[in-house]
Amino acid sequence: MFFKRSVPVTIAFVCGVLQVLDYFFKWGIVNKAAQETRAWVALVAVFALGLGAVNVLRVHLRRVQQNPVKNATSVLLLITFLVTIFIGLTAGQSSKPYKFIFDYIIVPTGSAIFSLLAFYIGTAAYRAFRARTLEAGILLVTGCIVMLGKVPLGEKILPFAPKWTTWIMQVLNVGGQRGVMIAGAIGFIAVSLRIITGLDRHTYGVE
C-alpha cells in the first residue's frame, strides 16, 4: 500500500504544489525545483514513447508468430517500423533516405487517410442533416451558411454568406464556446486538486 499509494500521492502532491507556487511567487529554490520537475516530464514522456514502441513490436510479433499469412499487415508494419528506425539511427533524421520515407510514404498515406473524411462526412451530412424539427432546421441553415461563407464559390452564390459566417463564428459561436471553456477550466481545477491531494483514487490505479 505504501509503494502503491502513499509514494505516488506524495510525489504528485510535491510536484503539483511546486508548479502552483512557481506560477505565483518568485522564490529562488521553489522556482528552480519546479523548472527541474518540468524538465523531467520530457524524459518521462520519451521513456513512455519508447515503451509504446516496444509494445507495438511485441503485439505484432505475437500476431506474426500465430499466423503470418493471415496477419500480413503486421508483417508489413514490422518491416516498415524496423527499416524506419534503422535508417533514422544510422543515417540520421535529416538524411536523404529518411526524407524519402517521410515525403513519399508517411505524408501521402497520412493525407490520403485524412482526405477520405471528405467523402464520409459528405454522405453522413446528406443522410443526417434533415430539418425534421425547428432546432434541426436552424442547425441546417447555419451549417449551410458557414460552409458557403468559407469558400469563394459560396461567396458568389450567396454574397452575404462571408459576413454572416463571421457573425456566426464571432458572436454565436464565441458565446457558446466561452461558456464551455470556463466550465471546462473550473472542472480542470477541481480535478487537478483532487489528483494533487490524492482524492482521485483512479489516477493512482486504486479501484
Binding site: A125, G143, C144, L148, K150
Partner: peptide, 12 residues
C-alpha cells in the same frame, strides 16, 4: 463545400 450543401438541400 458546394456539392455537400447541394446534397443536403436535395435530401431536405
Amino acid at each position: 463545400h458546394v456539392l455537400i450543401v447541394l446534397f443536403v438541400l436535395l435530401g431536405n
